[in-house]
Amino acid sequence: MELNNIFGNISFKIISARFLLRFWIFTMYPKPQAHNMKGIVFTEFIDMVESKFGFEMMDDIIESSNLPSGGIYTAVGTYDYSEMVQLVAALSQRTQIPVKTLLKTYGKHLFVVLMKDYSHFFPRIKSAFELFEQIDTHIHVEVLKLYPDAELPKFETKRIDNNTLEML
């Protein structure tokens, strides 16, 4: 009985030590940080592909991409950035349109959607320069109130003169 208790106690200590070691390794050496995107970026990409290339094309690129999400997205969900990279690469391969062109086209598409559905984020803005200057300081602040887990790009703007703006 006593021996059982002693061995039980020893094995418990060994398991605890292993757990602590693993926990320490996990916390001290975390995996490289994954970059996430809000689901709206994916749902709007799907809308754009379906409207420009058809439903079959969208199904094809989702099936060929072997995505962890299975290609099922909700606008408020959060998904790995790498899935977007896979989708754009697959679309480029099938359409023979360069990734660069697809990304630029998608940027234009998403802007129109954001202006239509989230116009309250852009009150009293009268020019593109005003908009660019307020994205990081005002608009992203409002976005984070709605989506605290959103990972937003950081940038600074600098007016060189009335007609020139730098964004970094």
């Binding site: 990734v99 660069k100 062109t101 990304l103 630029k104 086209t105 998608y106 940027g107 234009k108 598409h109 998403l110 802007f111 129109v112 202006m115 009268k126 020019s127 593109a128 908009l131 660019f132 790009p153 964004m167």
Partner: peptide, 20 residues
């Protein structure tokens, strides 16, 4: 993602009827 941002910037300019 520079090309994506380029698209956003172009669309913003078009939205405000500006050329750049």
């Amino acid at each position: 993602m520079a090309d994506f941002a380029d698209g956003l910037i172009e669309a913003a300019l078009e939205h405000y009827n500006e050329k750049a």
